[in-house]
Lab assay of single mutants.
Amino acid sequence: LEELEQFAKTFKQRRIKLGFTQGDVGLAMGKLYGNDFSQTTISRFEALNLSFKNMCKLKPLLEKWLNDAE
Rank of each mutant, 00 (worst) to 15 (best):
N35H: 15
K53P: 13
R44H: 10
K9P: 02
Q22I: 07
G34P: 13
C56Q: 15
N54V: 13
K12G: 04
E5R: 10
G26A: 10
Q13N: 08
E46M: 00
W65I: 01
G19S: 03
S51L: 01
Y33E: 09
N35T: 13
E2A: 10
Q39Y: 11
R14G: 07
L27F: 14
M55L: 12
R44L: 11
M55N: 02
N35V: 08
L62A: 04
G23Y: 10
G23W: 07
Y33W: 05
N35K: 13
E63L: 14
F7S: 02
F52W: 13
A47H: 05
I16V: 11
K53N: 15
G23S: 11
T40W: 08
F52N: 09
C56W: 12
A69P: 05
G26V: 12
R14E: 14
L48N: 10
E46N: 01
Q22C: 15
D68S: 14
Q13T: 14
K64A: 09
K31W: 03
T21M: 02
A47Q: 14
F37A: 07
G23N: 14
A8L: 03
K57D: 15
T40Q: 14
K59L: 08
F37G: 03
L61T: 11
N35G: 15
L66T: 03
F37M: 12
F20S: 04
I16P: 00
W65T: 03
K12S: 09
M55Y: 04
G30D: 06
D24A: 08
G34Y: 04
E5M: 10
T10C: 09
W65P: 01
F20N: 04
Q6S: 11
T40E: 02
L18G: 03
L48V: 06
L1N: 07
F20R: 06
A28V: 08
F45K: 00
T41D: 11
S43K: 15
K17C: 09
N49L: 10
L18A: 09
G30V: 11
K64F: 04
E63G: 11
M55F: 05
Q39V: 10
T21N: 10
L18H: 03
R44M: 10
D24V: 03
K31A: 10
I16N: 06
R44W: 03
L18N: 02
Q13R: 08
E70D: 10
N49W: 03
L4V: 04
P60S: 10
V25C: 05
I16Q: 12
D36A: 08
F52Y: 13
G30Y: 13
L62Q: 00
S43F: 06
L32E: 12
N54G: 11
L50A: 05
G30L: 11
L32F: 04
A28Q: 15
I16S: 11
L61H: 14
G23H: 14
F52E: 10
D24C: 04
F11H: 00
S43T: 12
A28T: 12
M29H: 01
S43R: 14
G26T: 09
T40I: 05
V25W: 01
D68G: 12
L62T: 02
K12D: 00
Q13C: 03
S38E: 10
F45E: 00
V25D: 02
T10M: 08
I42R: 00
C56N: 07
Q22G: 06
V25L: 02
R14T: 11
C56K: 04
T41R: 06
F11W: 06
K31M: 03
D36M: 05
Q13M: 11
P60Y: 03
E2Q: 09
S38A: 09
L48P: 02
N49I: 14
E70I: 09
N54K: 14
L62M: 12
M55V: 04
Q13D: 02
I42W: 01
T40S: 12
L32R: 10
L62E: 00
K9H: 02
L61I: 06
R44Q: 15
E3M: 06
Q39W: 12
S43Q: 14
G23T: 12
Y33G: 06
T40G: 10
R44N: 04
T40F: 15
R14L: 06
G26F: 06
L32H: 12
L62H: 00
K64Q: 12
R44E: 08
L32M: 06
L32V: 03
G34D: 09
G23M: 11
M55R: 02
F45S: 00
Q6E: 15
T21Q: 05
P60E: 13
P60A: 07
L50H: 09
K12Q: 10
G26L: 08
D68L: 08
E2I: 10
G30I: 14
K59A: 10
K9D: 07
I42L: 07
F52V: 14
K31T: 06
R44V: 02
I16W: 03
L66G: 02
E2H: 04
L18Y: 09
D24Y: 04
G19R: 05
F7V: 15
L50P: 01
F37E: 04
W65Q: 01
T10H: 14
F20A: 10
K57M: 07
F45I: 02
Q6P: 03
G19M: 02
S38D: 15
L48M: 12
K53M: 15
L58V: 13
E63I: 03
C56R: 09
A8Q: 03
F37P: 04
M55A: 11
K59W: 11
N54M: 12
F7A: 02
S51I: 01
D24M: 05
K53D: 10
T40C: 14
A8F: 01
E2K: 15
T10V: 08
A28Y: 09
I16H: 09
Q6I: 12
K12E: 09
G19H: 01
A69C: 13
